[in-house]
Nucleic acid binder design. Structure first.
Lengths: 217, 217
DNA sequence: ATTAATATTTAGTCTAAGCTAAAAAATAAA
DNA sequence: TTTATTTTTTAGCTTAGACTAAATATTAAT
């Protein structure tokens, strides 16, 4: 059986692996988890014993297939719970993270299977992130960041990259939500800001914003 | 903030207090929690520091008002989750305990408020146990055990005292469920078994069984 | 009222998971 | 290719929570 802490390390490594090539550095993990490199080394050794990560000292770590599967399942649970919180318990998309962070560690196969069914086998969480299946397969974003669209291109908002509370609240305020149609009216090369249209309303967003919104063309 | 272990001790003490007069003994807690008396002593000291229990060495422990409130809220969460599992996720009443045991420790006021509302503010869990309100008030069983009914008396099944999986499965098999009308056809003084009728069907149950079913007359 | 039995507490270990500070390896700079 | 810098690891401490064995209270029995 897996401890809370072990699960959190696996999850962190899974996320880091997606944006890293080669081994995942001790420091990167430490930073993501707000812990110290020495603690990371300890844990990685432990996970390595359990064959959840590959590890050679000084060479960084990588998840084994087994480790990936475990991590994907934690993320699966996290995202299913997020859907539950938003769809059934009236949470807003900026409120769900902390609670899901706790719920993801509940151990019960039946629970998660039934939850999945109860929610109608959702494919994405409230931020547009794909929900892995039980085997750990993820139908990942073939989507594109808003910032990459050119003048006059159109698309549908399908996800966010940053899901911090402040960013999500900003989006709510602007009426930017998943599923909405969006059109790029103009791009400003100087600061990479762009003027967009959603539902007849036009307004300008900064590069920061456009860089954190996924679009399906 | 309360640790997992602290919460479990408070809960155990709350349940023990209900069936004990005077202080709760170290041994009783140890037995209920499958731990050792020495560990209990340690924890009680810690809880005493936090003013969650009253404690004088060698004299047993008792929950403070604050302690009772915390414990009742954990039980509240446990029972609400049980309702959720049975009503929404198709768990049977003998399957819910272990999962609820985990879910009861999730920390989010909003979560539990919304869950309560989502379930329609249930008053009892699937075993007929009352769900405490947020202030820790419990509308406890003014109900009576089946064993106390006399020949020809009637009532409605409203709860179970033992909620072990094996007992619940037995009840399912016999068609004994909450809400059913029951009539005592006969009592055998020799072994305290009784013949009962539920929905036109008559059968005999042992003292053991009759002693673990709550009836509203 | 002693003694015997039982319950409780203390003292000292153990493990998981964190930390700091120092040592060692890898990488970058001169 | 040395030297300097950065990263990683090791060694040793800390805390929570559990344990065992020994010591001390309390309760029961004679």
């Amino acid at each position: 059986m897996m401890t809370l802490s072990e699960e959190n390390y696996l999850k962190a490594m899974y996320h880091l692996a997606a944006v890293t090539d080669g081994g995942i550095s001790t420091n990167a993990i430490a930073e993501r988890m707000n812990t110290k490199a020495s603690s990371v080394t300890d844990m990685i050794k432990k996970l390595s014993e359990k064959e959840l990560v590959h590890y050679k000292r000084y060479k960084g770590a990588a998840l084994t297939e087994k480790g990936k599967l475990v991590a994907a399942n934690i993320i699966r649970k996290h995202r299913l719970w997020e859907v539950f919180l938003v769809e059934k318990l009236n949470f807003t998309w900026d409120e769900v993270h902390d609670v899901a962070e706790q719920l993801e560690h509940i151990k019960s196969e039946k629970l998660i299977d039934q939850l999945d069914a109860f929610l109608g086998f959702p494919k994405r969480d409230p931020h547009g992130d794909p929900i892995p299946d039980k085997e750990g397969n993820v139908s990942d974003h073939a989507d594109v960041l808003l910032i990459t669209l050119n003048k006059d291109e159109k698309g549908i908002i399908v996800g966010v990259k940053d899901s911090s509370s402040s960013f999500l609240k900003y989006l709510d305020k602007q009426g930017i939500a998943l599923g909405k149609k969006i059109k790029v009216i103009d791009k400003e090369p100087f600061d990479n800001s762009m003027k967009i249209r959603i539902k007849k309303e036009e307004f300008t967003i900064s590069q920061q914003i456009a860089n954190n919104i996924y679009i399906k063309k």
